[in-house]
């Protein structure tokens, strides 16, 4: 949360929106009942809205910096994360190995599933044929440096 680059290639309004969203997520972690959270979120929105009309960019940047500082100091020790999003408990829990890994099996390993690999080779040939029919053959000259 706090390691989002402060001087990123974002516009000022994007930064403020990002800060607002992260603040809400932080509030969600603190106030777990929905109605209480809504009340706190409205209060927070009011604090943001109060400074929405600031035209002087120097002041606005300063306010943003203060907001980030306050968020950093008040972050929850155990932030509320959805399990499948980054930082969650089940993030990348189930590993799905890519299809090409099967091509790197040892012949002895492949021999344990003869029918599957026979069909797989056929399918690969069919796929290449389909590909070449649709997009043409690969140009040979590209393979040389």
């Amino acid at each position: 949360m706090a390691n989002v680059p402060f001087l990123g290639l974002k516009t000022h309004s994007q930064k403020v929106c990002s800060l607002f969203k992260r603040t809400l997520r932080n509030l969600e972690a603190f106030y777990d009942r929905r109605n209480v959270y809504r009340y706190q979120a409205v209060l927070m929105r009011e604090r943001f809205d109060k400074n929405a009309q600031v035209k002087d960019m120097r002041v606005a940047t300063q306010l943003l910096k203060q907001g980030e500082e306050e968020l950093f100091l008040q972050q929850h020790s155990i932030p509320r994360k959805f399990p499948l999003s980054p930082g969650g408990v089940a993030y990348e829990r189930v590993v799905q190995s890519p299809d090409w890994v099967l091509d790197y099996w040892h012949p002895l390993e492949k021999a344990q599933y003869p029918e599957y690999f026979k069909r797989r080779e056929e399918r690969k040939k069919e796929f290449i044929a389909m590909w070449e029919k649709e997009y043409g053959k690969e140009e040979k000259k590209d393979q040389h440096h």
Partner: peptide, 9 residues
């Protein structure tokens, strides 16, 4: 709860 462990949910 589909892998959710957080009791706040």
């Amino acid at each position: 709860m589909n892998d959710i462990q957080d009791i706040r949910f």
